[in-house]
């Protein structure tokens, strides 16, 4: 994909097959002895909103750092439009816009001054830069606050300045780390609407990290990470379709009874269930019928029941065998120990 020609440009620059906006090739990273990413490989398509879903400690923060050229992976390669993030960081940096989770704007400067500074870092100047500043501020709805210091803006408005900052150089790939943090529901809706507009009108490829299932539902495709490994990849609908049918949950009196119930369900109905604490979770077509059969067969073993269409959380449980939130979330050594930003 990223075969280099003699001029040092990737193949796409001379009109061959275009390089993927983001391509991971066996990315591995360890912090000392702890493996944070384990041979991760996937490709993000042109002009899609791609979600990186995983609980804390799943490695998505590490991956975000590598993609934003702030860390060199210990193994494998991450390529952005054919350029290696570790080897040619400046070429990658010109192509990506980044919205960090932590605040990166200078609150003592005005919104316009922040954007002017950011533009300078990307080689923009003069009238062209002024025009870009007005454009991006207009897009995030802050044109009337351009000359206000960022410290006087609300939290949601500050996030919008961050977004404007990431877009000032018109990147073709936009990376956002937990973009909904600190946004109220209305602001979240606006953000997603805006990301869709970017995708549709300007063909921008968007990568979003999130630990929120409902956020991931907005994405065109989702990669689910668990303990540094890719456990699932596809559109939310595809992933849920893999589960097949409904998710039926039986609550037993306790964990032992749940294990017993699971065994009996397997013997009687041939359905493999997952035991999570005192519940048994079974994926089954026509869940409501199955539910009735089980309750009738073991009336005293079931405390309560539920049936639902599968969610992305069910996909996660299906792939990993454990719950999204009860994973023994290890503190991220790089983020936690050094106190270098929350992201």
């Amino acid at each position: 994909m990223a075969t280099m020609t003699q001029s040092g440009k990737p193949a796409d620059a001379i009109g061959l097959a275009p390089a993927a906006p983001i391509e991971l090739d066996g990315i591995t990273h360890n912090y000392g002895s702890r493996l944070a990413l384990d041979k991760l490989s996937f490709r993000v398509r042109e002009a899609e909103i791609f979600g990186l879903l995983g609980p804390n400690g799943s490695g998505k923060t590490t991956l975000f750092r590598i993609l934003s050229t702030l860390m060199i992976p210990t193994g494998g390669a991450a390529r952005i439009q054919g350029f290696d993030a570790g080897r040619e960081p400046n070429r990658v940096r010109q192509r990506i816009g980044i919205v960090f989770q932590s605040r990166s704007v200078d609150v003592k400067l005005t919104a316009a001054e922040n954007l002017k500074h950011q533009g300078h870092l990307y080689g923009l100047r003069g009238a062209h830069l002024q025009q870009r500043i007005a454009e991006v501020l207009e897009r995030v709805g802050l044109l009337d606050r351009a000359d206000d210091r960022v410290e006087s803006l609300s939290g949601g408005q500050q996030r919008r300045v961050e977004l404007a900052k990431g877009l000032i150089h018109a990147p073709s790939v936009l990376l956002l780390d937990e973009p909904s943090t600190g946004l109220d529901p209305g602001a979240r809706r606006d953000l997603w609407q805006y990301l869709r507009t970017l995708r549709d009108q300007q063909g921008v490829t968007v990568l979003v990290t999130t630990h929120l299932m409902e956020e991931a539902e907005h994405c065109d495709r989702v990669a689910i990470l668990s303990k540094g490994k890719l456990v699932a990849l596809g559109s939310p609908a595809e992933l849920k379709a893999k589960i097949g049918g409904d998710v039926v949950t039986f609550e037993a009196a306790g964990p032992e009874q749940a294990a017993q119930l699971a065994a009996e369900i397997r013997n009687r109905f041939g359905a493999a269930g997952t035991v999570l604490g005192s519940t048994v979770r079974v994926e089954r077509d026509r869940g409501h019928r199955f539910l009735t059969e089980v309750v009738e067969a073991f009336p005293r073993r079931v405390e309560s029941v539920s049936v639902a269409r599968p969610s992305l959380e069910d996909v996660f449980i299906d792939c990993t065998g454990h719950r999204f939130w009860t994973e023994d979330a290890q503190p991220d050594p790089a983020g936690g120990k050094n106190k270098r930003g929350e992201y």
Partner: peptide
């Protein structure tokens, strides 16, 4: 060929000037 967003390299002086100015303004 994809839209070549050949953002020119910012060089040294423009970013350095911008960082310098920020120190003074702050």
């Amino acid at each position: 060929a994809p839209q070549a967003k050949t953002a020119s390299s910012p060089g040294i002086w423009t970013p350095a000037y911008s960082l310098w100015l920020r120190e003074i303004v702050r």
